[in-house]
Design a protein around this nucleic acid. Structure first.
Lengths: 171, 171
DNA sequence: TATGAAAAAACACGGCA
DNA sequence: TGCCGTGTTTTTTCATA
């Protein structure tokens, strides 16, 4: 199944009506994006051609957005991960959007969240080690205009779940 | 390329020595796991067969660990995301590991981090909406033995970067 | 590392309920 | 409209030099 990573005008994904079959396909692909159509088909009890149609439709409607391999961080020299909790000075749309866009261009940044609560932004970063973490904080965060305060939480351990839960009503 | 999602005894991924070619392959696959070997080969200027060997080796050495499709959360009825910041009572290995393992079984949990700093754990969750968030907090977190305190940060916006940076020395 | 051949997968399409 | 089977094209996989 080809992945139309360039996805343009279509019906919104939230309007897509999915049935149990679609949900089953999504569940399988979230844990392994390279399952063959045949494997999926036999698992959900549908003909390969029909399964293929379903998957193509999921891409076209924007329910499926991309595929990614998971790489061992250690293999690339990542020795430490951390969360930066940031306080921001101004909360205008421009400053916030600019900051988010800018941060995600920093190679060490894996994800950035704009949030309510004690902090304004939470950023997950990967680094070589503690020295690198210090440099990153001082050079790319403390530095940045709009950032008033930074707290650092080093990550000891983490878990991840790849399959999204289904909250929609399914026929 | 077949994905040996079931990966057994092999040399550690941190011992794998990667060259620029491997790094190029990884960069492409992290953003699109379904690129054909031919596409990758022509992009990095290598024969498809050699490229194929490289990719197989990356799987075998554990540098590549899995592939996942990205699903539009809205398509599944996710209307709100949040971060829970938890304080824990006891920090023995058993309680902490149990808690991490237990939390990642909760469907609404996407990832969980054990961290240093003001909080002990940070958990990313997806929910239908604010009511669902309240129920989740009270039923699955406040509830849980070991959790002494919970702060909630609703996520307004988020960005993600799929390609891991390369910190290792590359020949 | 490259070539080429065999196997498998993806894809397109016509027919059918 | 959705499912199925078949034929065609593309990709993967492997043997060999």
């Amino acid at each position: 199944m080809k992945s139309p990573q360039t996805n343009n005008l279509r019906s919104k994904a939230e309007d897509a009506d999915l049935d149990r079959t679609d949900v089953g396909i999504l569940a399988m692909l979230q844990n392994n994006a390279r399952l063959s159509v045949k494997e999926i088909a036999s698992s959900i009890g549908l003909a390969p051609s029909s399964t293929h149609d379903r998957i193509r439709r999921l891409w076209q409607t924007g329910v499926l957005r991309g595929t990614h391999v998971e790489v061992d961080p250690k293999a690339l020299g990542v020795g430490l991960e951390a969360l930066f909790m940031l306080g921001l000075a101004k909360h205008t749309r421009e400053t916030v959007d600019e900051l988010m866009d800018g941060l995600v261009e920093v190679p060490e940044v894996r994800s950035a969240f704009l949030v309510t609560g004690r902090y304004d932004m939470i950023v997950h970063v990967v680094v070589r080690g503690i020295q690198h973490l210090k440099d990153l904080a001082l050079d790319q965060f403390t530095n940045r205009p709009g950032v008033t305060r930074i707290e650092t939480s080093v990550i000891f351990d983490s878990r991840r779940r790849y399959a999204m839960p289904v909250f929609r009503h399914i026929d």
